[in-house]
Simulated scan of single mutants.
Amino acid sequence: MLITSLLPLLSRYSLGFDLVAGPDGTVTLTIIPRKSEGNKASPEAGEVRPISITATAAEIDEELARGADGALGQLIAIRKELGDQIAEQRAAAETAKTAKTAKTAAKLKAEPAAKTPSPAAPAPSAEPAPGEPASLWD
């Protein structure tokens, strides 16, 4: 039952397990999602947060027997949905980035080449030509 319950997470992550027996007959099962090999995207912190269940061994077995209808199954479904949403957002961001880059490249290609500056007009001389009054504006 455990592996069947975890298949949705296994499609996206590598999983680690920790089992600890408590002093009062309880058991703590901790499932630790990790980045799987070959997965290019790094998982977000919320995606790889460990899942812990503390109960008696019989209660944990009963919970796992519920499959997708149990608390663990529902939590895994929510985690998978979260992972899918994050993947969609990453893809949309990458598409927007690619579109912006293409738009910028097209804009630069469409602009005419920088014109060479025309030779500047000679600067007016500080001295007036013979017979002309001095200007206050020069």
Rank of each mutant, 00 (worst) to 15 (best):
M1Y: 03
L2T: 07
L2H: 03
I3V: 14
I3A: 12
I3R: 15
T4E: 15
T4C: 04
S5Q: 09
S5M: 03
L6A: 00
L6E: 00
L7D: 09
L7K: 15
L7C: 02
P8I: 02
L9H: 07
Y13C: 03
S14H: 12
L15F: 04
F17D: 01
F17K: 01
F17M: 06
L19W: 08
V20A: 15
V20C: 05
A21L: 11
D24N: 14
V27N: 01
T28F: 00
L29K: 03
T30P: 08
T30G: 06
I32G: 02
I32R: 13
R34P: 03
K35V: 03
S36F: 01
E37S: 12
N39K: 14
N39S: 14
K40D: 15
A41D: 14
A41Q: 14
S42K: 10
E44S: 09
E44M: 13
A45S: 13
G46I: 09
G46K: 09
E47M: 12
R49F: 07
R49Y: 08
S52K: 11
S52W: 04
I53T: 08
T54S: 15
A57L: 13
A58E: 15
E59H: 11
E59A: 15
E62V: 08
E62A: 15
A68G: 10
D69H: 14
A71M: 09
A71D: 14
A71F: 05
A71W: 03
Q74R: 15
Q74L: 12
I76H: 00
A77T: 10
A77K: 11
A77E: 13
R79E: 00
K80E: 00
K80F: 03
E81V: 08
L82W: 05
G83V: 01
D84Y: 04
D84I: 04
D84M: 04
Q85V: 10
Q85L: 12
R90E: 01
A93K: 13
E94C: 03
E94D: 09
T95I: 05
K97H: 13
K97E: 13
T98Y: 05
A99N: 11
T101V: 07
T101P: 03
T101A: 14
A102S: 08
K103Y: 05
K103N: 11
T104N: 11
T104P: 02
A105E: 13
K107G: 06
L108F: 02
A113N: 07
A113G: 08
A114L: 09
A114T: 08
A114W: 06
K115H: 05
K115F: 04
K115N: 06
S118E: 15
S118M: 07
S118L: 10
P119Y: 02
A120L: 14
A121H: 05
A121N: 13
P122H: 03
A123I: 10
A123K: 15
A123Y: 09
A126Q: 10
P128V: 07
P128W: 04
P128L: 04
A129H: 07
A129W: 08
P130I: 05
G131M: 02
G131V: 01
P133G: 01
A134E: 09
A134T: 02
A134D: 01
A134Q: 06
A134V: 11
S135G: 07
S135A: 12
L136V: 09
L136W: 02
L136F: 10
W137Y: 12
D138H: 08
D138V: 15
D138W: 03
